[in-house]
Simulated scan of single mutants.
Amino acid sequence: MKYPKQLHLPGAVFGCLLMLLFAACSQKDKEMKDASPAADVETMTEYLVSQGFDGQQIVFEKDRVIIEQDIIMTMPELEKRVADWQEEKAGGVQTEQRRHTSLISNSYNSNVRIYIDPGVPTAWRTAVQGAVNNWNSISGTRLGMSITTSQSNAHCVVFMGYQNANWVARAYLPSGGLPGVSVEINGYYNSLSASYKLFTITHEFGHTVGFHHTNQTSGIHIPGTPTSDPNSVMNSFILPWAGFTSGDVLATQIIYPL
């Protein structure tokens, strides 16, 4: 199959037409079920929209919420963020506190340990190792990653899923000072080229360490970085891997300085 020059991570249809895009995040195809969160769905949605997320790209499930199709947040984490937000509106907590919870603490950020489930095919395993090498190649930052053979010793687990849907991979954001707990790869897209696979996993690891999409409005803008960076690895379109942009490097150096 011939792939287009640009593949969309968060929201397009996969197919054989030249202009079709791939979603590297979750398809908005599930409704919230059996959930009774402390904060109601309307309030949680209001909070997420206040943070710049698109209200039409928020999917509630039983114990988590999927945002912008490849960002996953647990329900307890979202409830805590909503509570902090409500307190802030009342004059309490500052925004810096909420931003900090989206990053990894110094106790873990110099060696984010990643475990690859045995069910992950060789081609994707190669992409995972390449993505680890990519993030480790950025100089002037304390952020580091390694692959561990012990799941019990890992911060983040990479595993396979399968769904005939328009998402290629999806990941959790950091929580409680720890990296995002997992990256799920959709086996439906196993035919992607090695270059697209590498871009995809590098992108998803970016989410696990706290980055949002550069071409969307969610998250807090990192001062000193470009407001437009179309070739960023955190852009929501899959590209053939061509290295980090200067904006990617600068952003990493700013949020995880030496």
Rank of each mutant, 00 (worst) to 15 (best):
L17I: 11
F244I: 06
F211W: 07
A35S: 11
P76Y: 07
I201P: 02
Q6N: 09
A35G: 11
A83D: 05
G180E: 02
R125D: 00
P257Q: 03
H212V: 08
V82P: 02
G92V: 10
D54T: 06
E87H: 04
A24I: 07
N136R: 07
W241C: 00
Y3H: 13
V41F: 10
F22K: 13
P179I: 05
A12H: 11
K33A: 05
E61D: 04
T122S: 09
V183P: 01
L48N: 00
I116Q: 01
S191F: 12
I254A: 02
R64Q: 08
I71W: 06
V65F: 04
T95D: 11
M234K: 11
G140C: 10
T252W: 05
S110N: 09
A169S: 10
S139Y: 10
G11H: 14
V168N: 11
T74I: 08
A194F: 07
T202M: 06
L9E: 09
N166R: 12
S152E: 04
L178N: 07
F244Y: 12
E46Q: 13
M73I: 11
G210P: 02
G243S: 06
M73T: 02
V13H: 13
D29N: 15
I254P: 00
P174H: 11
H100I: 10
V157E: 10
G206S: 05
V65P: 01
S150R: 08
N235K: 13
W241T: 00
Q56K: 13
P76N: 04
